[in-house]
Structure formats: structure tokens, C-alpha cells
């Protein structure tokens, strides 16, 4: 009986895996057929082989582009997230700080970071600094709002429980507030990480000699659609890897969170 059940479960998992792969496989096949056996010009739709060839051709340069973009993203992401979380904690925790800063945050919140790129270039020049600041700004906005909300959502029951067990303000902060908001913060960080890649590319479009954005702009300028797509694929892969890394950390830190198993 049990054996049957285990077998069925195993089969179900296999079916799920096959289904998961089939969507991607079908798209790849469709792409291959459309690009190789129809009259659609390479300019619009280069074939998968061409993308691979282009990748090999630029393989010497690619690491340089990756590191230069990742440098901007990582620095911007960390600086922006850190400031966002710390400010969010203060605003969420302290009434006076909240009264002063929250209206300001609410005003800045709807500003699209991309709209500020020209201003940042004006202030900080066309180099890395302005790009990093755009990314940091984008991360900051999301996380400051996210953290304020998370702090506000902590069940007062836990704060009362901790205090009745002898916890002082610092103990409550350390042992209740921080762990209680961690799941929300990590969810915010995941959104921010994905955004950071997009903002980095947008900032690079405004002028750069390296990075994912450079590959894409070069591809467009010289009508090398394959190069353009290599740029897009590289960002996608890096963004996916970043997301996986964050999920791994999330799993470690939020084992206690009740979840619906699927």
C-alpha cells in the first residue's frame, strides 16, 4: 500500500519535471525552426547556433563585461539595501522618526529611479558612480517601504510576551523584531535584486564602455542582433543565479515560517 503511494508520488514528480522542461524545449525548437527554415532575416531573429557562435567569439571580453556590471549592481544593491533597511527600522520602530521621515518617504516612493538617471549623471558624472547610485536608490526605495511595513506588521502579542518575560527594548529589538521581519525583508531583497539588474542596464544605456548594457547597445548600433541577445541572455542568467542564491539564504533563515506545502 505504502509502496504504491511512494511509487505514485515518484511518477507524479517525474511527470511534473517533464512538463516543466517541455515548455522551454518547445520554445527552443520553435525558435530553431523559425530562424533556420523560414525567410525571417537574421537581423530580426538570429538562430540559436549564431547566438552560441557569437558567445564564443566574444568569450574573451565577456568576463570583463560581467564583472563590470556585477560590480555596479553588487555595490549599489548592498549600499541601497543597507540604508533602506536601517532607515525602515528606525522609521517603523520610533514614532518621532516616523512622523518626520515617513511623509518624505511617501513622496519619494513613487519616483521612478530611471527618471532620475539624468539627474544623477548631472550630479555624479557619467562614470560608475551615477550608475551605482541609481541602483542604490532603487534598492533603497523598495526596502525602506518594505521594512516600515514589516515592522508595523509584527504582532504586538510577541512584543508583550517578550516584555513580560523580562526583555528590555534592545532585547525585544534583537530577539523579536529582527527575526519577525526577516521573511518580509528577504522577500523585498529578492525583488530588489531583480530590479537592480534592470536598472544597471538602463543606466548603462546612457553611456558606458563595459557591461551588459554595452553589449546590448553595441549590438543595436552595429545591427548585430546576436550580440544584443547575448547581452540579454547574460543578464538573465546572472539575475537567475542571484535569485537562486537569495532563495538559498532565505531557506536557511526562514525555516520556521509556516508554509503551504505543494
Amino acid at each position: 500500500m505504502n509502496e504504491n503511494k511512494a511509487k505514485r508520488l515518484y511518477n507524479e514528480q517525474n511527470i511534473k519535471r517533464i512538463q516543466n522542461v517541455s515548455g522551454i524545449a518547445l520554445t527552443l525548437i520553435l525558435w530553431y525552426v523559425l530562424s533556420n527554415f523560414t525567410s525571417i532575416p537574421d537581423l530580426y531573429l538570429p538562430s540559436p547556433q549564431e547566438i552560441v557562435q557569437c558567445f564564443i567569439k566574444y568569450s574573451k571580453d565577456i568576463p570583463r563585461h560581467i564583472t563590470s556590471s556585477l560590480h555596479r549592481i553588487v555595490v549599489g544593491f548592498f549600499v541601497g539595501s543597507a540604508i533602506g533597511i536601517i532607515m525602515g527600522l528606525f522609521i517603523g520602530w520610533n514614532k518621532n522618526v516616523r512622523n518626520i521621515l515617513e511623509p518624505l518617504v511617501e513622496f519619494i516612493r513613487p519616483m521612478p529611479p530611471l527618471a532620475l538617471i539624468p539627474l544623477f549623471i548631472l550630479w555624479f558624472g557619467i562614470g560608475d558612480k551615477s550608475k551605482i547610485i541609481v541602483i542604490a536608490f532603487g534598492a533603497w526605495v523598495v526596502l525602506v517601504v518594505n521594512t516600515i511595513e514589516a515592522v508595523r506588521n509584527v504582532d504586538p502579542l510577541y512584543l508583550d510576551a517578550a516584555r513580560s518575560l523580562g526583555a528590555n527594548t534592545w532585547d525585544v529589538f534583537r530577539t523579536v523584531l529582527i527575526p519577525a521581519i526577516t521573511p518580509d525583508i528577504i522577500a523585498g531583497i529578492r525583488v530588489v535584486a531583480a530590479n537592480s539588474f534592470g536598472m544597471c542596464v538602463a543606466a548603462e544605456f546612457m553611456g558606458t564602455a563595459t557591461g551588459f548594457g554595452y553589449l546590448i547597445i553595441e549590438g543595436r548600433r552595429f545591427i548585430k542582433t546576436d550580440l544584443l541577445l547575448v547581452g540579454v541572455l547574460l543578464i538573465t542568467i546572472c539575475s537567475m543565479l542571484a535569485n537562486m542564491l537569495i532563495r538559498l539564504i532565505e531557506k536557511r533563515l526562514t525555516r520556521w515560517v509556516p508554509r503551504v506545502e505543494n
Binding site: A161, R163, S164, T175, A180, W256
Partner: peptide, 29 residues
Amino acid sequence: NSKVGMVFQKYAAFPWMTVEQNVSYGPRI
């Protein structure tokens, strides 16, 4: 204050702590 212990109507065990960590909370603090 810690002289008055509380057992609440709602489940108040800290969800991010194990049974052991919950029970040892007061002494640890």
C-alpha cells in the same frame, strides 16, 4: 515586568524559535 508572567489567549510562542529556545527565553534574557 517579569514578575508577572503571562499566558495569552492566542498562541504566543515565538514562531522563529524552537520549543527549547522558547522555553529558555526568560532565563536567557
